[in-house]
Design a protein around this nucleic acid. Structure first.
Length: 576
RNA sequence: GCUCCCGUAGCUCAGCUGGAUAGAGCAUCGGAUUUCUAAUCCGACGGUCGCAGGUUCGAAUCCUGCCGGGGGCGCCA
């Protein structure tokens, strides 16, 4: 697998120096020596901190180690100079001409220098996964947006990706829902706003079950009838599923989210009994108080119930069946689940069981903090949810106001298109730009920030470049900037070029750590560097040659911004 | 009781596979537009990195304990 990103090139290079200077070091130690981006621009571009760590083993002063290693380094055209600083840091400054050559080389490269790291690997990504018959609310946005970014990142790296929307379509809510439907349904409302009506029915039925034991019992019987295949119940259930899917699809279209598979838990139901039988056969499952449980105390986990006393199956069983199906059908190397933090224990449990069954696929749980409201946790039952639909509407209308203000001459149809891209982008970026593992309190203003570190800032930077490109075409018709070389003389040009060089390692890291925020951070930094470059250096008014070089740099920045934002699922209009 | 996560500037957060003087945005204050989109740029102000120990040449980052907040823990998903 080709992996020619700059850190790898420099790490290999520095390793040769250490190998030559200290031939007694074992291979493992040598291979651990690496080069990373400098922590501060004043130190250079890249740095190697290995000398300090080797001081004890080599019984030498770190600076002396660094000096000997540097002295043993072969020529490297990427490197302009090395310097030993502080306690024994090896600071590396890149050669601007080599950098310019490299950037000219990737101008036509669709991947902008990113290697096909995931070639021949398959990954299933299980995300979004709303429950049928309940509207999508702000609690679903993070799984959908983060999952979709991971989906795009993996595809970009060449993985074969199966994005799977694992709908909650077989849970206990259907007993209450079917019972409620028979008593409370308003057919007109169902035709008008299907999911809202289903939710109303569910909430009403749930409330009654809290005070009416007979009602709850009846709901259980309805569920059993459904799960045993009663035709009338099946038909009704099918209708609930279809109505919900239509609603979900509207949201997914607006968010630009697309799945390869949309399979609910019900898809796997024929496997549930076999899973229990298998667990019993290998001695993992045992009976306790009438239920089937798997004891995981030795693994530091609690008991996991796999089958209820009444014969019903639990989530763990359904998830195990799903893994089994995916292994048989797709042979994935990895299955990634994107859910909120409350399910951590559940995933640890069923991952452990899968491991005990000898299933080889790597299982990864990417979790994020729960979204809360300033006053309290939201919940469907308490009725204080903020619907996703409303959130998206609000974002678009806020964006539209700003667009109208700043681009009053833009045709109205275009204003709407821009407002959609900006509004939805802002929402997505708000979720993608921070480490997901912290609890998030939802506020409208925060979710839709339109200045500073936000999607609109990045989109604005992109639109300015598009405008420069167009103006260049108008003023210098027929002129091709590529007739002139990319030349990096000014500090602002160099800084920008060095940022562009980092894109591949950033994409790789964001994917491998399952953290789109790493890419978001980078893009913001890139846009800031560009904005400063834009503000401080003339392009169109610069002399011929310099002008073209800067236009080329603009072009690369535009492509990097567009590609990066696309990986986050954020659109980049040419005008905003 | 057991367990997982969070605690960094007034507010919202990066940084946490250990590295040099801890960084952004917002807010506040000051400056920049006859010039390529000012949703911008340049600058200032602002910090006991929750507390206390420990490991290390070096700790916001790793370990232990404590405090504060949130989540989870046998028939929900």
């Amino acid at each position: 697998m080709e992996n020619n990103i700059i850190e790898t090139i420099l790490s290999n290079w520095v390793q040769t120096g250490f190998t030559k200077a200290f031939p007694d070091l074992d291979t493992e130690t040598l291979q651990a020596i690496d080069v990373s981006a400098a922590t501060d621009e004043r130190f250079g571009d890249y740095q190697c901190n290995a000398a300090m760590g080797l001081a004890r083993a080599l019984r030498m002063a770190p600076r002396a180690i660094a000096e000997q290693a540097v002295a043993a380094l072969p020529e490297q055209d990427w490197v302009q100079s090395t310097e030993i600083a502080g306690a024994g840091f090896i600071n590396i400054t890149l050669n601007p001409e080599r950098l310019a050559d490299h950037l000219m080389g990737i101008e036509d490269h669709a991947q902008l220098g990113v290697p096909a790291f995931g070639q021949d690997r398959t990954v299933v990504i299980d995300y979004s996964s709303p429950n049928v018959a309940k509207p999508m609310h702000i609690g679903h946005i993070r799984s959908t947006v983060i999952g979709n970014a991971l989906d795009r990142l993996h595809r970009f790296l060449g993985y074969r990706v199966l994005a799977d929307n694992h709908l909650g379509d077989w849970g206990t809510q259907f007993g209450l829902l079917i019972l409620g439907y028979h008593h409370f349904v308003d057919q007109d409302a169902l035709a008008q706003h299907p999911v809202e009506e289903l939710e109303r029915i569910y909430v009403k039925s749930y409330e009654r079950s809290q005070s009416d034991a007979e009602w709850l019992d009846q709901a259980r019987r309805e569920l059993v009838k459904l799960q045993q295949g009663d035709p009338a119940h099946q038909e009704l259930w099918q209708q609930f599923v279809e109505l919900s899917l239509q609603e979900f699809d509207k949201i997914y279209t607006r968010l630009g989210v697309r799945f390869d598979l949309v399979r609910g838990e019900s898809f796997y139901r024929d496997r549930f009994a076999d899973i229990i039988a298998t667990l019993q056969k290998v001695g993992l499952a045992e009976e306790s108080e009438g239920a089937q449980i798997v004891r995981l105390e030795d693994d530091g986990l609690d008991v996991c119930i796999v089958q209820k006393r009444d014969g019903g199956y639990n989530y763990a069983t359904s998830d195990l069946a799903t893994v089994q199906q995916r292994i048989e059908e797709f042979q994935p190397d990895t299955i990634i689940y994107v859910t909120d933090e409350r399910q951590q224990l559940h995933f640890k449990q069923f991952f452990t069981i899968a491991d005990k069954l000898g299933w080889q696929t790597e299982l990864v749980h990417v979790w994020f903090g729960l979204m809360r409201l300033p006053e309290a946790t939201f919940s469907t039952r308490q009725g204080n949810v903020i619907r996703l639909e409303r959130l998206l509407d609000e974002a678009e209308s806020r964006a539209l106001e700003i667009v109208k203000q700043s681009s009053p001459d833009m045709p109205e149809a275009q204003q709407l298109v821009v407002a959609r891209a900006v509004g939805i982008g802002a929402i997505k970026y708000a979720d993608l730009s921070q480490n997901p593992q912290s609890l998030v309190t939802f506020t409208w203003d925060k979710a839709m920030a339109m200045d500073g570190n936000s999607a609109p800032y990045l989109q604005y930077a992109y639109a300015r470049i598009a405008s420069v490109r167009d103006k260049y075409g108008e003023r210098f018709p027929g002129q091709d900037p590529r007739q002139f070389p990319l030349s990096l003389k000014e500090e602002a040009e160099l800084r920008l070029a060095k940022r562009l060089l980092r894109f591949p390692s950033v994409v790789l890291r964001a994917t491998q750590l399952y953290r789109p925020s790493i890419l978001a951070d980078y893009l913001y930094d890139l846009a800031q560097t560009y904005s400063s470059f834009y503000q401080n250096l003339p392009f169109l008014k610069a002399e011929e040659g310099v002008r073209e070089s800067r236009i080329r740099l603009c072009g690369l920045t535009a492509r990097t911004l567009r590609t990066g934002l696309e990986l986050l699922g954020i659109e980049t209009p040419d005008r905003i």
